[in-house]
């Protein structure tokens, strides 16, 4: 386990060192960015709408019982912006895109395509890892902003049409405006930026260390998703702790 962590940190360091070559790889970054967006946008939309909806459905009646229905917009807005959207989208992208990255790079490793790159003096970090990590750190925060907006809308729909609540759209968003500030959205976007680095680096690392044919590729995909999710949850706590200390 410690060896794995060391290798992941080393790969992250190599990606940072490769950053000056990012402009040369811009076409690949764009291709990956398109791939992430194209593959995820609909799922992000559906998932975030229902996260907002179910959160409003769970919290709304409970708050209403204590005559706090005016706080529903704020609670839903705050929770989605700071926590639910970044972590749920990160888990979704780890499963959908991280697994694909690990499988693609793993298959390239098993079928000697990465060795072929090396024999041509093409650095696999520049050619394969850097574009994927960069596309991820651009795409995930954008998807999270989109997810926050859709999630808020999902919460507003439930608050409006649920018979126990019946909070009009305008009142829901006015209430949200009192609670949620731009810093809360920034907080969620910053988290998603960190999660994107985790997903990109962990998935590429698993791909690059794949051994043992198709079975090995399957193992790498599973490990990429599981390790990404575990690290996302751990880092979610650490980032929240740090932000609560430094951004009171």
């Amino acid at each position: 386990m410690f060896r794995n962590i060391g290798e992941i940190v080393l790969l992250f360091w190599r990606v940072l060192r490769a950053l000056p070559h990012a402009w040369r790889q811009r076409q690949k970054v764009f291709d990956q960015f398109f791939e992430i967006g194209n593959a995820s946008l609909l799922m992000v939309c559906v998932l975030s709408f229902f996260i907002g909806a179910v959160f409003a459905l769970q919290t709304g009646p409970a708050l209403a019982q204590h005559s706090l229905s005016s706080a529903v917009g704020g609670v839903v807005g705050f929770a989605i912006a700071r926590e639910l959207a970044p972590i749920m989208m990160a888990i979704l992208i780890a499963g959908r895109i991280g697994s694909a990255m690990a499988a693609e790079i793993g298959s390239m490793r098993v079928y000697q395509e990465i060795d072929a790159l090396r024999t041509m003096n093409i650095n696999p970090i520049d050619y394969l890892v850097l574009p994927r990590v960069l596309a991820m750190v651009v795409a995930l925060p954008m998807l999270v902003i989109f997810a926050i907006l859709v999630g808020w809308f999902g919460g507003a729909v439930v608050a409006n049409y649920n018979q126990q609540l019946e909070i009009p759209f305008a009142a829901f968003f006015a209430d949200m405006k009192d609670f949620v500030v731009l810093k809360d959205v920034g907080n969620g976007v910053f988290k998603s930026f960190c999660f994107a680095i985790i997903i990109g680096v962990v998935s590429c690392h698993q791909g690059l260390t794949t051994i043992g044919g198709p079975r090995g590729i399957g193992r790498s995909v599973t490990k990429a998703v599981v390790n990404s999710i575990v690290l996302i949850v751990i880092f979610d706590y650490l980032i929240t702790l740090l932000l609560s200390i430094f951004l009171k």
């Binding site: 298959s107 390239m108 079928y111 000697q112 395509e113 060795d115 072929a116 790159l117 024999t119």
Partner: peptide
């Protein structure tokens, strides 16, 4: 190096 499998990028 010409690889046994060709190792073309698929």
């Amino acid at each position: 190096l010409v690889f046994q499998s060709g190792a073309l990028l698929n």
